[in-house]
Amino acid sequence: MDKHDIHQDPLLSVEEQDWPQSKQDSSAPSPSSEFIRPYTGRTGRRRRSALKIKLLQLALGSSIFLFSLTILLLWIYISGLSAENNRISAEFNKQRRHLVAATAALEKLQNERNALVQGRLPYLLPLEYDRAISVTDQYLRNIIFTLTKNQGETATEYRVVLQNDGSSAIYPEVKILLFDKLGIQVGSAEITNGEQSSDEAILDPGEVRSYSGSVNFFRPGNPHYFHAAVY
């Protein structure tokens, strides 16, 4: 072994001893990297928090907008209903005024017609159904008219009450005449001795009796007046 070789061995040993140390030093973290890592984590959390706040603000703003829009639509709908209600009320009041005016005019015409008919035929009485109409003519007391329907056919029936206040028996004979609204005769009925039985043909003193029958119509028209009399 020469002198040059002996001089190189210590150098090699020194390098061999220094190389693992440098490798070990390079793997250790530096102080600057340890400082940057926590700072970066805090910045990320702040960004996420800010994003959450913005999302909450956006959701809250959307909710307020939808609520305001709903209130606006409800107000428009209620305003429309109120306007429609006012229009219907105004139309109803208008029709009611027209009806009142028409009813008054109709009553006036009916009264004028009744006055003309009764002026021409003063003995006529207004005909009313299902009501006892007082008629005072000798032993005739009252009469009731009833409108009946049988198998689609309409008929007018009567019921007459007679009372004998005299001291002697009488043979009741009553004629009933019906007239339309113009005073034209449209039907009649009679109570005669020939149509009654022997017991019904005589009305004893103090006796009260009723007679019933149907009116015979010989002219089309609705009866509005009648005349009942003893003959």
Rank of each mutant, 00 (worst) to 15 (best):
L73F: 15
H224A: 13
I6N: 10
L69Q: 09
R159I: 07
E34A: 12
L12D: 13
R113Q: 15
L109A: 11
E128P: 00
E207M: 10
N193R: 12
Y211C: 02
L177S: 14
I76A: 10
S33I: 15
S134F: 05
G206K: 06
H227F: 15
R141W: 01
Q118K: 14
W75V: 11
I191H: 01
Y123M: 12
N93I: 07
P223G: 01
S62F: 12
K108M: 09
T136E: 07
N150K: 10
T136N: 11
L116D: 09
H224I: 07
A90R: 11
R87C: 04
Q185D: 01
T70V: 09
V117I: 15
S134Q: 13
V186Y: 02
A104Y: 06
G213Q: 04
D165A: 14
R120I: 14
P20V: 04
T136Y: 07
N93S: 11
R219H: 06
F218I: 01
D18T: 06
S134K: 13
K149N: 11
I78M: 10
L58A: 14
G213I: 03
L177R: 11
V161R: 14
Q8I: 15
L109F: 03
Q8M: 12
S30I: 03
N85D: 07
S22V: 14
K149Q: 12
R141A: 00
R46N: 08
W75P: 00
E84H: 10
T154V: 14
F92K: 10
L56E: 13
K175D: 07
S212H: 05
K94D: 09
V160F: 02
E200M: 12
K94I: 01
E91C: 05
G41T: 14
R131P: 00
S198C: 00
F92G: 03
